[in-house]
Design a protein around this nucleic acid. Structure first.
Length: 494
RNA sequence: GGUCUCGUGGCCGAGUGGCUCAGGCAUCGGUCUGCAAAACCGAGUACAGCGGUUCGAAUCCGCUCGAGACCUCCA
């Protein structure tokens, strides 16, 4: 299939025409969260950005397998021998089982993303579920001479890799190993490594370390970067289309992933690397250590000292989509309030559109060129700010029809409705929020409706249409309309 | 210190050699309304500073200032 989509590839530093390896199938892997604390808004921005990308790829006809991992084995705190992973550290402090921590924050993560109307990924694999594969890859790299064992731990040999692949380490981040050497800080426990640039594939666990697995080298745990190499290739193949994540993962995480995959089979693992930019709060990077941080819950309830009022998930989503995913974005009351008004204006226009009566001619807008501009914006590296700007042209037209200044034919009205439905709801993933959506009651209604719609979806999937239709009819009696769409069912109160 | 990115009007935020250089919010004027809100119409204000390239630069180059990211877990 042919698409006009261009994406900015971090690997080349340029916008490139998107060409899927096995069109119409697309494989996309996004680095997920480490589930040792509540997901914060910076994380949310990344996952909302990739949700939009997933939605758009699907919208233009690709069949996307979207894999996003859950890091439940933790990452090392630091490079030192004494390093322990974040999950077991937290578990010890709170005297919980590590998997209890994992469960709690995984549920929190899913809950928050659902509030933001993110679609679930196709596969959400966990690091602890792929220890066998990680040991396997470590064994293979070791056998090929690109890693070495040292005191029960296994390290990736960057120098050997660079020799074999002609200085490939640094191809993504633009770093040179020589620079790294001269700038690496002196850390404790570096003695096991032959070279400071080397990184762990397997770490021997200290006696205090709770999370541990048996391996040929020691009782220990996998290195920082191994899970993504293993899980992406397991579910998407040795070479796949898109790998994404936050910019802060570019180095060392993604660089090491590439090295591990190349060490395995010599192939370029990923065609397009996409990186989302950071979110700041009142001009400063969000950081737990400085207290300049905001959790989604604090934002929705207004229970925080950073912003003047509360904001709904859809307002925040809209706000984030008003900036390009590769630009940094600052969170502030003024900016969010402006976004809130804009979002309501857009949503109200869409309600107005439903009640518009067609005329004999379309006057006031060149619908076809408008639609081309809308799609053109998205095809240009998912430029949602331009898309939204152009959507407001549609808002002016809709309000103009309502006001009697413009008219629209029945077929154009249909076209406009389907266009807006597709781009606003399916691609941007926005949805209507009731007047009182901030109250607990409404949230409960939303959750209940999700359960009901999910039951109906399951009935439809098993071709139990009688049950599915019964659910729809009963909802209809309550003046609730169910709307089945490509991206799932939606509902609204008439 | 090294690598890199960025600096757009009152706020947020696109664009990136010329074609009156988006859009949202705010402000001002008008229409509408019993009033208000909403909606609609209209208006203004900008490209950090200095220098250079060019017929022409917000857009390219250099320098200065300022901000941020990565170099260590981090979306």
């Amino acid at each position: 299939m042919e698409s006009k989509l261009q994406v900015y590839n971090s690997l080349s530093g340029k916008k490139e025409k998107f060409k899927a390896i096995n069109a119409p199938n697309v494989g996309m892997y996004v680095c997920g969260p480490t589930v040792y604390s509540e997901v914060h808004l910076g994380n949310c921005r990344t996952f909302i950005s990739f949700d939009m990308i997933f939605r758009y790829l699907t919208f233009i006809g690709y069949k996307v397998r979207y894999v996003r991992n859950i890091t439940d084995a933790g990452h090392l705190e630091n490079d030192a021998d004494e390093g322990e992973d974040k999950i077991s550290k937290k578990a010890r402090l709170t005297e919980l089982e590590p998997m209890e921590i994992v469960q709690k924050y995984t549920l929190d993560f899913h809950h928050v993303l659902a509030l933001f109307n993110n679609l679930p990924p196709s596969i959400e694999p966990t690091a602890t579920g792929h220890i066998v594969e990680q040991i396997g890859l470590t064994e293979q790299i070791l056998k090929d001479g690109l890693a070495y064992e040292s005191n029960g731990s296994v390290y990736f040999d960057v120098a050997a890799y660079n020799k074999k692949f002609e200085g490939a380490y640094g191809e993504l981040s633009g770093r040179k190993v020589e620079d790294l050497l001269s700038n690496t800080r002196t850390l404790e426990g570096q003695s096991e490594k032959r070279d400071p640039a080397d990184f762990a594939l397997w770490k021997k666990a200290s006696p205090m370390h709770i999370m541990r697995w048996k391996s040929p080298w020691s009782d220990g745990f996998p290195g920082w970067h191994l899970e993504c190499s293993v899980m992406s290739s397991k579910y998407l193949g040795d070479q796949f289309d898109i790998h994404g994540g936050g910019m802060d993962l570019k180095f060392p995480h993604h660089e090491c992933e590439i090295a591990q995959n190349k060490a395995r089979d010599g192939k370029k693992p990923v065609n397009y690397w996409l990186h989302t930019n950071m979110l700041t709060l009142n001009g400063q990077r969000m950081s737990k250590s400085t207290g300049n941080t905001l959790l989604p819950g604090e934002l929705f309830t207004g229970d925080n000292d950073k912003l003047s009022k509360s904001f709904t998930p859809m307002v925040v989503r809209f706000f984030m989509l008003q900036a390009h995913y590769r630009s940094s974005l600052d969170f502030s009351s003024d900016a969010l309030e402006a976004a809130e008004k804009g979002f309501n204006k857009l949503m109200e226009a869409l309600v107005v559109l439903e009640s518009i009566e067609p005329s004999k001619a379309t006057i006031g807008m060149d619908l076809n060129s408008w639609i081309l501009k809308l799609h053109g914006a998205m095809d240009d590296d998912f430029n949602t700010p331009i898309l939204i700007a152009n959507l407001f042209e549609g808002v002016k037209f809709i309000n103009g029809i309502k006001y009697g200044d413009f008219t629209i034919t029945a077929s154009d009205l249909k076209l406009m409705k389907s266009t807006l439905d597709g781009l606003v709801f399916q691609v941007l993933g926005l949805k209507h929020e009731g007047e009182n959506s901030k109250s607990g009651n409404d949230e409960m209604v939303n959750d209940l409706m999700q359960i009901i719609l999910d039951s109906r979806l399951r009935a439809r999937q098993t071709k139990d249409f009688a049950s599915a239709d019964r659910i729809r009819d009963l909802l209809s009696d309550l003046n609730i309309t169910v709307k089945d769409g490509k991206m799932g069912a939606e509902w609204e109160v008439n």
